[in-house]
Amino acid sequence: MDQDIQAINAKIEKESAFVDKLTGEIGKAIIGQKYMVERMLIGLLANGHILLEGVPGLAKTTLVTTLSKTINTKFRRIQFTPDLLPADLIGTLIYNQHEGTFQTKKGPIFSNLILADEINRSPAKVQSALLEAMQERQVTIGEETFKLDDPFLVLATQNPIEQEGTYPLPEAQVDRFMMKVIVDYPDKDDELKIMQQMSADSSADVNVVIEPSDIVNARSVVKEVYIDEKIDKYIVDIVFATRNPEEYKFDDLKELIQYGASPRASIYLRLAAKAHAFLRHRGYVTPEDVRSIGLDVLRHRVIVTYEAEAEEVSAEDVVRKILNRIEVP
């Protein structure tokens, strides 16, 4: 067992070496936003899609573009609008008059990194088409089913302001995103650097650090990261506390939670914690890995009651309380 762990540790150390190079390369183009960069890498390594929420102008698109360059993948940005159709996204069949046959025209979803910008601006049928593709990782056009490229990562954005004329994602569909990341404004120092860099008009050239196949390989290594039974129980406790808070003597939360997190939350918490450990070149998961990604994995999976809304208590507040109070192994 000890030798296995040592072997895993050594393997992780070797396989995760690209992480620092990658973040360094991204850092050339993106100032600050380390949190968002790390979450994107976790999504990439844990094969989970990410919902980004933040006001416009926080370098979300720039970051995804830069990331796709550094990992040498195809990148497509799809602006979701009210008149977008599923066919605009996944593709359609076009009739070829010369040959008298239908030919498949693949949509922009056939890419490695997809930035679904302002996903809540499109109606439910378009959202469904995307979310189905995210889940199944395949798309059917006409009678033909096409496997989507690997790696395939969807980064969907939502604007927390301007809610008029939007189609909020249903809870069941939001659950398909591994993480919901809140993108915040940069701090003063970063803002200063951003301002100076942009004024100099010298867009940084980023180099390819790894190939898509390396990402696929890294994913299998991430799965090998050791997770102790104590940590597994800790994850289950966190998720159960969102469902039955009174069982953990969090009686004050009982009236605030309408629905707790689904088993998908436990699965993604475990996977994301492993990816978090991998990013830190560690072959095993610690409680801190779970705590670190807990909020991003759970905030969109807990539905609060009307009472909570009336008291201005958000799902994020509830999750934060649970993470703070649940006993850490």
Binding site: M1, D2, D4, I5, Q6, N9, Y226, D228, K230, I231, G283, Y284, V285, T286, P287, P329
Partner: peptide, 10 residues
């Protein structure tokens, strides 16, 4: 303590 507690190493 961490590496013994969570890495499965005895």
């Amino acid at each position: 303590a961490e590496q013994f507690r969570f890495s499965g190493t005895e």
